[in-house]
Simulated scan of single mutants.
Amino acid sequence: MAAEKNRQVLIVELPQGKLSEAHFKLVDGAVPEAKDGDVLVKTHYISLDAANRAWMQGATYRDAIESGQVMAGGAIAEVLSSKSDALKPGDLVFADTGWQEFAALPAKQCTKLPALEPMTHLLSVYGVAGLTAYFGLFEIGAPKEGETVVVSAAAGSVGSIVGQLAKIRGCRVVGIAGGREKCDWLVKELGFDAAIDYKNEPVHKALKEACPKGIDVYFDNVGGDILEACLFRMNLFGRIACCGAVSQYDGEAPAHGPRGIPGLIVTKRIKMQGFIVMDFNDKRDQALDDLQRWVGEGKIKVQEDIIEGLENTPRALIGLLAGENRGKRMVKVT
């Protein structure tokens, strides 16, 4: 192992505006050694998420990223050697390996994964994307049969699963996505009742037509103007699951936040709650059982967007932030 190189992608400069490939650098580092309690892992698939960009703006639920570091990111990895009783060589784990081929990590920071095929589903429907959709919708949104559920970034990794889960619950589902092709896919392939193309039609007006009875649950992945538009269509005692704000992660800060929040939340008694998937670790097994059953029954269609090559990870993240992907985007390292 000592003779091998460890290809790594560093974040060499934190962006002040739009993220670009110039902010990253591909280097050859040394393969690390596992210390007591650690495991040495080989990275197979790196998860790409809008949160990668948010981490560059400062501390969130994790430490802020600093220039000169290996870019942070979660991945599916295989244990090569172990100095912990918790894991053994050959085990698959999900861990914050960063954007690199090899990583040495405390075993307690690695989540052992089941031997499921295809492996990529462990990052998409059975990974953070699927679990985020499941808990955000069911625990925060709490939809009831017959209610109207709206989800933004509906063609993305989380949104595409949220809509299908809401259909399983018996709801009317409206997706908001960019481009007619994505909107057609949501309706014709995933079974959404309607889709709004925010790039080519006024969202406020389109919501009135798509949600004639108002919105009971809004799953927010984007924030900004789309959140504002949905707020004005919320029903009494509506619920908003705040998952992300991708519209505000990359570029200049918006001139204003969504308007109408204080008055609308009070007068309509709206529940608006942020969450992260780790909040519900105690319910993870039940969620995975449900997701596996629904995939097996064909009630959830899994869409994955796999980019080949560690060197293409920066470009792949920039493309995700621009809305290139359909479904879960990831990078195949090996």
Score class of each variant (00 low, 15 high):
residue 101 E to A: 13
residue 102 F to W: 07
residue 103 A to I: 10
residue 103 A to D: 08
residue 103 A to G: 11
residue 105 L to D: 12
residue 106 P to T: 04
residue 106 P to D: 05
residue 106 P to A: 05
residue 107 A to Y: 05
residue 108 K to Q: 12
residue 109 Q to K: 12
residue 110 C to Q: 03
residue 113 L to G: 05
residue 113 L to S: 07
residue 114 P to A: 05
residue 114 P to K: 04
residue 114 P to D: 06
residue 114 P to N: 01
residue 115 A to Y: 08
residue 115 A to L: 11
residue 118 P to M: 09
residue 118 P to T: 06
residue 118 P to F: 06
residue 119 M to L: 15
residue 120 T to F: 01
residue 120 T to W: 02
residue 123 L to R: 08
residue 126 Y to G: 00
residue 134 Y to N: 10
residue 134 Y to R: 09
residue 135 F to Y: 15
residue 140 I to L: 13
residue 142 A to E: 13
residue 142 A to R: 13
residue 143 P to H: 13
residue 144 K to I: 06
residue 144 K to R: 10
residue 144 K to P: 02
residue 145 E to A: 15
residue 146 G to E: 01
residue 146 G to V: 00
residue 146 G to P: 02
residue 146 G to S: 00
residue 147 E to T: 03
residue 148 T to Y: 02
residue 148 T to S: 06
residue 149 V to C: 00
residue 151 V to S: 04
residue 152 S to C: 09
residue 156 G to S: 06
residue 156 G to W: 02
residue 159 G to V: 13
residue 159 G to H: 13
residue 160 S to R: 14
residue 161 I to N: 07
residue 161 I to G: 06
residue 162 V to C: 03
residue 163 G to E: 05
residue 167 K to I: 05
residue 168 I to V: 15
residue 169 R to S: 06
residue 169 R to C: 02
residue 173 V to S: 11
residue 173 V to N: 09
residue 173 V to D: 12
residue 174 V to T: 01
residue 174 V to S: 00
residue 175 G to Q: 03
residue 175 G to V: 08
residue 175 G to K: 04
residue 177 A to I: 00
residue 177 A to S: 08
residue 178 G to V: 00
residue 180 R to L: 13
residue 181 E to A: 12
residue 182 K to C: 07
residue 182 K to P: 06
residue 182 K to H: 12
residue 184 D to Y: 07
residue 184 D to C: 06
residue 184 D to N: 15
residue 185 W to D: 08
residue 185 W to M: 12
residue 186 L to Q: 07
residue 187 V to Y: 01
residue 188 K to G: 01
residue 193 D to E: 09
residue 194 A to K: 13
residue 196 I to P: 14
residue 196 I to V: 15
residue 196 I to R: 14
residue 197 D to M: 04
residue 197 D to C: 11
residue 197 D to F: 02
residue 198 Y to Q: 03
residue 199 K to I: 04
residue 201 E to G: 07
residue 202 P to G: 11
residue 202 P to E: 14
residue 204 H to V: 15
residue 204 H to E: 15
residue 207 L to H: 13
residue 208 K to H: 15
residue 210 A to W: 00
residue 211 C to M: 14
residue 213 K to Y: 12
residue 214 G to K: 14
residue 215 I to H: 11
residue 216 D to L: 02
residue 217 V to G: 00
residue 217 V to Y: 01
residue 219 F to Y: 12
residue 219 F to Q: 03
residue 220 D to W: 08
residue 221 N to D: 10
residue 221 N to P: 07
residue 221 N to C: 06
residue 222 V to L: 03
residue 223 G to E: 04
residue 224 G to T: 09
residue 225 D to L: 09
residue 225 D to W: 01
residue 227 L to C: 02
residue 227 L to N: 00
residue 228 E to I: 07
residue 228 E to C: 09
residue 229 A to Y: 02
residue 229 A to R: 02
residue 230 C to N: 13
residue 231 L to C: 10
residue 232 F to K: 10
residue 233 R to T: 04
residue 234 M to E: 02
residue 234 M to V: 03
residue 235 N to P: 10
